[in-house]
Amino acid sequence: MSKISIREAINQTLREEMTRDERVVVMGEDVANRESGGVYGITAGLADEFGELRVIDTPITESAIIGAAGGAALTGLRPVAELMFIDFLGVCLDQLMNQIAKFRYMFGGRATTPVTIRTMIGAGAGTGPQHSAILYPLLVAIPGIKVVAPSNAYDAKGLLAQAIRDDDPVVFCEHKAIYTEECEVPDESYTIPFGQARTVCEGTDVTVVAFSRMVLLAGQAANALAAEGISVEVIDPRTLSPLDDEAILASIRKTGRVVVVDESNPYCSMASEVSSIVVEKGFDYLDAPIRKVTAPHTPVPASPVLEKEYVPSVAEIESAIREVAAY
């Protein structure tokens, strides 16, 4: 075990998977850059170790990056393509939504597209409206792709290894504001199966389902409320598609109360999806209305003051938990 950050865990996993399987290639903007290894240094050192045939710097052309990653996956490689910020999804969505996601289905099950798309999500760095969104609900809505969003280094390592070894297309969402979060991570390689939530902390009064960076905030809220005598259970689904409905429902069966916390915009979001699942399949367990804590229906502002207002806070989460606990 070593205490490493999410950033280091991702770098380590890329290195391990490239060593394990020579079909794995890394491609994207600046990924082979020897000085930086990308904007946040995630791919640092890979080009030196594996060479420029397997760590491929591309032009700033997202349709070509994502489409070529799909075509390479279709023909025998296991590419890990970097879509630098998920906001750039707008540039290349066709290649993901109409091509990669549909290959297997529209070709009658005779095509396999083992591509991983790593992408940065989230606000908190002052990067403004076109570099800070979450957007993964758009992808969760598309059949044929899987969507993953780790909240700690241990999960990042195991889920990324699974994504790269997975035979389906996976979008791996990395929240840029938690890259430096550290935890104990095994030195050896391991995978975490998709569709299995993690119980972050156990509790009996209120269930909080939180995604990506919001898991950290939910954990802080749970700690703070323990002092007030409210016992909070935090569930991190870890994978958004497939989503572990069972774990969420099992927790609510125990607590009867739920708060869903998601940094994406509120409509057609993970928060609304979880709420829908709970109402449809867990209505009888509920002792209080569901509360959603999300970003508002606005773009992400650049102003640090407004951005702080935009992102759900620990205080908002605490307040929502208190509200449903008291209902």
Binding site: M27, S63, G67, G70, G71, A72, L74, Q95, N98, Q99
Partner: peptide
């Protein structure tokens, strides 16, 4: 694949060429 998106194919073909190059 034939492709119902006009211009959808070339990035995919580029990916296949990338496989060949790799």
């Amino acid at each position: 694949g034939a492709n119902a998106i006009v211009g959808g194919g070339p990035p995919i073909a580029a990916g296949a060429a990338l496989t060949a190059r790799t």
